[in-house]
């Protein structure tokens, strides 16, 4: 357990506009092997192709839960960096539409902050593999945006 009693990691990542410190606080995202790069349109998240990402060994296809976890992580990190002021997004609900089976190859995701309110945010995430025109899944979610001073630290 981290003995830090602050959310310095969030401020750090926002200051350098890079997700490194956020990912360091998020072991599951590290385990999934999520990588973050940037292109002209914003952040692009990558879920590497790995044997232990496979759900259906017959096809084989990426596990739907791993795909969901990847898109949820992308949304959280994107929100942390995109908000006008530093706040802690907490996912209230998350809904994923699976459009086609994800093959065992790298999966990419991009997020769109559709609405940033004072207390709530709405996001869309889309995921693709070979081509961004051919989506494998889309997701939408709502986040509660907690003020940092109201965020309980254990």
């Amino acid at each position: 357990m981290s003995d830090t009693s602050s959310l310095d990691w969030l401020e750090q990542s926002r200051a350098i506009n890079a997700p490194d410190a956020i990912l360091d606080n998020m072991p599951y995202a590290r385990w999934l092997g999520i990588e973050v790069t940037r292109d002209n349109s914003g952040l692009v998240f990558t879920l590497p192709a790995r044997r232990d990402m496979i759900g259906n060994p017959l096809l084989p296809a990426i596990h739907g839960g791993a795909m969901g976890a990847f898109m949820e992580t992308a949304a959280i990190i994107d929100t942390m960096l995109a908000l006008r002021t530093a706040k802690m997004p907490k996912i209230a609900n998350f809904s994923i539409d699976y459009l086609r089976a994800g093959k065992c190859q790298p999966t990419y995701a991009r997020c769109e902050l559709v609405r940033e309110g004072k207390r709530l945010a709405n996001l869309r995430v889309h995921a693709w593999q070979a081509s961004e025109d051919r989506l494998v899944a889309t997701a939408r979610l709502h986040c509660v945006l907690a003020e940092l001073d109201q965020t309980s630290i254990r």
């Binding site: 596990h63 839960g65 791993a66 969901g68 976890a69 992580t73």
Partner: peptide
Amino acid sequence: HGGVITMV
């Protein structure tokens, strides 16, 4: 992580 919950 919320993603773990999604996976389960």
